[in-house]
Simulated assay, not measured.
Amino acid sequence: MSDWAYSNVVPWWPYVFILLGGWLPTDMWRYLGVVSASRIDETGEAAAIARTIATSLVAAVIAQLVFYPSGALADIPTVVRVAALGAGFTAFQLSRRRILVGILAAELVIGGWALVIGLG
């Protein structure tokens, strides 16, 4: 059996793959956004639709994390995850929409649960 493998011949190929597959497409859209931003009306219908889609995608990811978690999050009971979501959202609203405050409140709920059952 041969020890020949592409990674042995060209050890830097994963970095090229990351560059071409991750960074380049992402930054391409960012640069296009910067170039075209001056021509987009913030109050227009297209911008409203884009914000609506972006918000719904974030809500879907959060719902999936709360109701259909994987990994270590799946070990936390649903009621604790829902309580953390509620506490985080309430803290976010009460703190004049500071994201960090909402995240910390949600983590305090999960951390408190972990201390109660002896995980911490």
Rank of each mutant, 00 (worst) to 15 (best):
G118N: 01
I49S: 08
A83V: 03
E42N: 11
F89E: 03
F89N: 03
A84G: 03
Q64T: 13
S36A: 15
A48Q: 12
A5N: 09
P69V: 00
V9G: 02
T90L: 10
T55E: 12
L85N: 00
E45K: 12
L85M: 08
A46M: 10
R51H: 06
V16K: 09
A47T: 11
L24F: 09
T78H: 06
E107S: 11
Y68W: 14
A63R: 01
D27I: 15
M1C: 06
R39V: 12
W113P: 02
A105L: 02
S56R: 15
S56T: 11
L108M: 11
G112E: 01
Y15R: 09
S95Y: 00
L104W: 03
A59C: 09
M1E: 07
T78E: 14
I62C: 05
L65N: 08
S95V: 03
S36P: 04
P77S: 00
V116E: 10
S2M: 01
L119Y: 14
F89R: 05
F89S: 04
A5L: 07
V80N: 02
V109A: 00
F67K: 01
Y6S: 07
M28A: 14
V116M: 09
I103H: 00
V109Q: 00
S7C: 06
L115I: 07
L32A: 12
T78F: 08
A48Y: 06
A74L: 05
F17K: 12
D41Q: 07
S2F: 03
V80G: 01
N8I: 06
W29L: 15
S38C: 08
D75I: 04
I117V: 15
G118H: 04
F17N: 12
G111L: 03
T43H: 14
A48R: 14
A87R: 03
R96A: 10
S56G: 07
L73P: 01
Q93K: 11
W12V: 15
I49A: 12
L57P: 04
R39G: 10
V34W: 09
V79P: 01
I49F: 13
P69G: 00
G112C: 04
I99D: 04
G102S: 02
F89L: 15
L100M: 07
S70G: 15
G71A: 02
G111P: 03
Y31E: 12
A105F: 01
G112H: 04
A47M: 08
S56K: 14
L20A: 09
V16F: 10
T55S: 12
P14C: 00
R30D: 05
